[in-house]
Amino acid sequence: TDESSKYLFAGMIMCQMQLATTNSLLAYQFITDEEGFARISSPEAKKEIGIPENYTPIQQLRVGYPENRVDSRETHTLSSLMERFN
């Protein structure tokens, strides 16, 4: 695939991961700094994580428990969400 497709597919996967994380009442944080990518791009780290040698990480999502306990999340209607964009 071409370079732009890699980022499109990675973005689609990250979106699904965000939704699954939120649904599980967990927290997530994007790792976007160069240092974070350097850590997971080394051959040793890729082997430890299980990333194939011929793959290059382009996005990273840290998942864990939020600082404050979340028992439920506020639900929104479509119209209340759309108001944010007006």
Rank of each mutant, 00 (worst) to 15 (best):
S79R: 10
P66W: 05
Q60Y: 04
I49C: 01
E44T: 07
M82Q: 15
T22V: 14
A38N: 13
E74S: 11
M14I: 14
E48C: 01
I31D: 00
G36K: 01
S72M: 06
D33W: 01
Q29L: 10
T21P: 02
Y7C: 02
L81T: 05
V70P: 00
G50I: 01
E53R: 05
Y55N: 05
Q16G: 12
L19I: 13
C15H: 13
A20E: 07
T56L: 09
S80G: 03
C15Y: 14
P52C: 09
T22C: 10
T77N: 02
A38C: 03
D71C: 04
E34T: 08
E44A: 12
K6N: 13
V70Q: 06
R39S: 07
Y28I: 01
A10R: 03
F37Y: 12
Q16F: 13
S24T: 05
Q16V: 06
F9N: 05
I13H: 06
N54Y: 08
R73L: 15
V70F: 06
L81S: 04
A20I: 06
T22R: 05
L78Y: 14
S42Y: 02
S72F: 06
P52N: 07
T77K: 02
D71G: 08
M17V: 14
S80W: 00
E35N: 10
P57I: 03
L19T: 06
K47Y: 03
R84F: 15
G11F: 13
E48K: 15
E67W: 04
S24A: 15
F9A: 04
R84S: 12
S5P: 01
T22A: 12
Q59N: 12
E35A: 13
C15Q: 14
T75V: 08
Y7G: 04
I13R: 08
R69H: 13
P57C: 09
I58S: 02
N23Q: 11
P52K: 10
K6G: 09
N54V: 03
E74R: 14
R39K: 14
S24N: 15
L78V: 15
E44N: 03
Y28F: 15
I31W: 00
L19D: 06
E83Y: 09
T32Y: 07
T1C: 10
I49V: 13
T21G: 06
N86A: 08
Q59C: 12
Y65Q: 05
R69M: 15
L26W: 05
I51A: 09
T22I: 15
V70C: 04
L78D: 10
T75M: 09
